[in-house]
Design a protein around this nucleic acid. Structure first.
Lengths: 345, 345
DNA sequence: GAGTTGATGGCAAGCGCTTTCCGCCTGGTG
DNA sequence: CACCAGGCGGAAAGCGCTTGCCATCAACTC
């Protein structure tokens, strides 16, 4: 047998109608006599039948897929989100389709268009969206939603759609406060370009928290979210000159780790000399030396919740997700007397 | 409009038959007059039409999905594979569906069964398979293949199916030799349970290379592939006692990093005191201190090749993939005179 | 014992798309 | 000018599955 057995085959073998076989095998509200059930199951097992989900989706008008859009699946940040999504999907009996946007809005729109063809149950947008309007993307999303699809966006400015809010702003404020509280007075930010929403929120939040605590933002470099960006930006910063005692904050853990690498390569010491903090609390930062101070974001739970939300629009988490700052060795407490380096303001 | 527009809608609006609309929009061998093409495209754009891939799959009898099975998508090892798969899939115009096995053979079989329902074009098995026969899995795979699906397994013992071979054995031999060449004489292995194929190959390979080079395997602990496993195993090893100068080899970078954490916590110094090596060369090990010696596995390329193989069974890579050992600071060269610890047997 | 339920099997009409024919028209040939 | 080939649009028969509706029958009810 080179073609997969169909429902019809099963029905014939069991000596029942297709309708009955369908009701037995693929969950229906209608009850079927025990004897029939038995026969159908037996026939299905004998034939190695497996439902054709495409056909099922065509007939039912809805599929059992959930689509996930991430910037880069190899990035632990998105990897953990995907992990949570996979968990939620499995629980809901859904399969997950994933694609990478490379943070390119055009590509993102293109992918949404292709996903739209899959008629997935829901669409989870985890790729950092920019603040700029993206007309094509918005149009695709609108059409997807018009067709009955659930779109849930993960992140801050998720306009219009169902959203799992991630309080980057609040988390960053806490980070700023905490670090100012530890005695830091000068900070340099390594961020993504203006318009990258989560970056913008983190920058704004940190700035607010840090200045409230008496600190000063002494510099702001822009690149992206990756380790390479962090490395490059830090190298530049080193060229421009950084005073010891300065705190360098990366827009993501990856960036901070990249900065750490640049620092080490330049012979400077992270921690006591130049302090370092990141954002996200991905596995990346836990094992470097010094261990990275960061803001914990419950990425996996977020992904899980996104699926729940897509499956059941009314669903809400028991407790809102909290971003907590995690202080580690990369930001040692600054000794009482500040080095009189940069005066405030 | 709350229901997505269908081909019929487009055809009507364009004033042509469904057949013509189909030919214009969804690639067909047949040519259609320019005027008609124009009208159809226009109508499709006006309506925001997007093909229903499920229906298309039903009609064509084949879908545009490629399925990927990994142990844990949040693990960078699999994240990088998935990244490569995503790249290949995009190139081929395929969507990728992914699921996590948690390294549980039963779950794996269950997932293959569900994927089978999706009638994907191909199925890529990246989750570490055990050496033990897994009858249910094999049966599912056989049935999938019988239905015309391409299954390509990533890894060592990929019996029966199209496989992208990963030469764990060869890579590990090189690692063993290299490290023996650097002067190490005693090694302890932190591995996964017997039967975990890639672990077995790595253990065997390292043992061979290392003993050939004059080293001795002084211990073999078994846990798993994760950071936690590494941490736990190393803690145990520490309790059991390890002589300075010993080399600890983790079955994966994750394990090695976990071991590093345990080491640090116990106040021992990685590198000069206890040397450390991993396997895989995932981002994990690059930025820890000391940086981790490991075997580079081109995970992304592997994933990419798997897709190519699935799409075109005849395809073969230009050059076979090579595993190279990457020596970093976690295995400093041992000074000439060995510490007379464990005599070679 | 006729009438009423309620449970359950089957028929057949879709779901949206592809693809095989079929027929028409244009154009080239001798 | 009769004829044939080739190009192209359309009608319609599926693809595998679901589900509304009807038929049947056993169990009750008065």
């Amino acid at each position: 047998m080179t073609a997969a057995p169909t429902l019809k085959d099963v029905a014939e073998r069991a000596g029942v109608s297709q309708a009955t076989a369908s009701r037995v095998l693929n969950g229906s509200a209608r009850h079927v006599g025990d004897a029939y059930q038995e026969r159908v199951h037996q026939a299905a097992a004998d034939l190695g039948y497996s439902v054709n989900l495409s056909a099922q989706a065509t007939a039912r008008g809805t599929s059992s897929l959930i689509a996930l859009l991430v910037a880069d699946i190899a990035d632990p940040y998105f990897g953990e989100i995907a992990h949570g999504v996979a968990r939620g999907a499995e629980e809901a009996g859904l399969a997950v389709a994933v694609a990478e946007t490379d943070r390119d809005p055009d590509k993102e729109a293109k992918l949404v268009r292709m996903f739209r063809g899959l008629r997935p149950f829901g669409l989870i947008l985890a790729a950092s969206r920019g603040a700029d309007p993206a007309p094509e993307l918005d149009q695709e999303l609108a059409q997807f939603a018009a067709g009955g699809g659930q779109v849930v966006a993960l992140g801050p400015g998720a306009g219009g759609y169902r959203a799992i809010h991630i309080d980057h702003l609040g988390g960053a404020i806490k980070l700023g406060r905490t670090l100012a509280g530890r005695g830091y007075r000068r900070a340099v930010l390594l961020a993504a370009p203006v318009g990258a929403l989560s970056s913008d929120h983190r920058v704004a939040g940190f700035t607010q928290g840090f200045t409230e605590g008496g600190g000063v933002i002494a510099g702001l470099y822009r690149g992206g979210y990756t380790r390479e960006d962090g490395y490059r930006l830090m190298a530049q910063l080193l060229v421009d000159g950084v005073a010891p005692g300065t705190l360098v904050v990366g827009v993501s853990d990856q960036v901070a780790v990249g900065a750490l690498a640049a620092l080490r390569e330049a012979g400077r010491e992270a921690g006591a000399d130049i302090a370092l903090a990141g954002f996200g609390d991905t596995s990346t930062g836990r094992d470097v030396t010094p261990a990275l101070t960061t803001v914990h974001v419950p990425l996996g739970d977020l992904g899980y919740q996104a699926v729940r939300r897509a499956v059941d629009p009314g669903w809400a988490p028991d407790a809102p997700l909290d971003l907590a700052v995690v202080v580690r060795d990369s930001t040692p407490a600054v000794p009482a007397a500040p080095p009189a380096e940069g005066g405030p303001t």
